[in-house]
Amino acid sequence: MSNDCFRLKGSVLTTFILELHDDSDEFGQQLKNKVDATPEFFQQSPVIIDCSKLDPTTTDINYSDIVSVCRDNGLQPIAFKYHPDLDLSAVKPTKLAVIEHNSKQTDKAPAENPLLPANDHSPKIINKPVRSGQQIYAKDRDLIVIGSVSGGAEVLADGNIHVYGSLRGRALAGVTGNHKARIFCSSNEAELVSITGHFLVSHSHDTATWKKPAQFYLEDDTLHVVSL
């Protein structure tokens, strides 16, 4: 606890990525429908607006409108992800940060992902409960939690996540794009579960697995939950 005015710390922040496919007038209504379905979940969530999938030849995209639509729906846009061919000057007035789209990283096919299963990436093992406010990230590997993950805690892994206690907080597997990543827990009471950004929040869960041993996996871009 020194007297320095600040300290720079590394951190991993979970945000939503809003991947725009079409800058049409329906965007506002569609976003509203999505947010209305689980309003408290999206409350003031930071979001990155990904424009890299938009047709780079379009010139008349109104970025300020996109930002207002997000704000009107209770999201907090923090940055634009853009395609290198897209005209940047139009983004400037929104004063949001811009992140260059890294095509290598996101377009990686899961089969080519060398990380799973891998012999030289032994899992990260946590021997105690993960408490509210804590965040644990297993980079390039699986995560094993021997205790419970509390409500308000967050566990992330590039690989699979195993929780041998109750999963009450948030679990995000395959965060760098491994679609084969799975999440296992002894008691499913999760606030949120996500695999490569496909997520389920607690009240949208299949109630049959609630408070029971469960497994989450992706199939056809949909997140499934089944009893173990």
Binding site: K128, R131, S132, G133, G151, G152
Partner: peptide
Amino acid sequence: VRDSDRILGILQS
């Protein structure tokens, strides 16, 4: 209970 959980996390870190 949630706050106690947080303080336990701080205690052990």
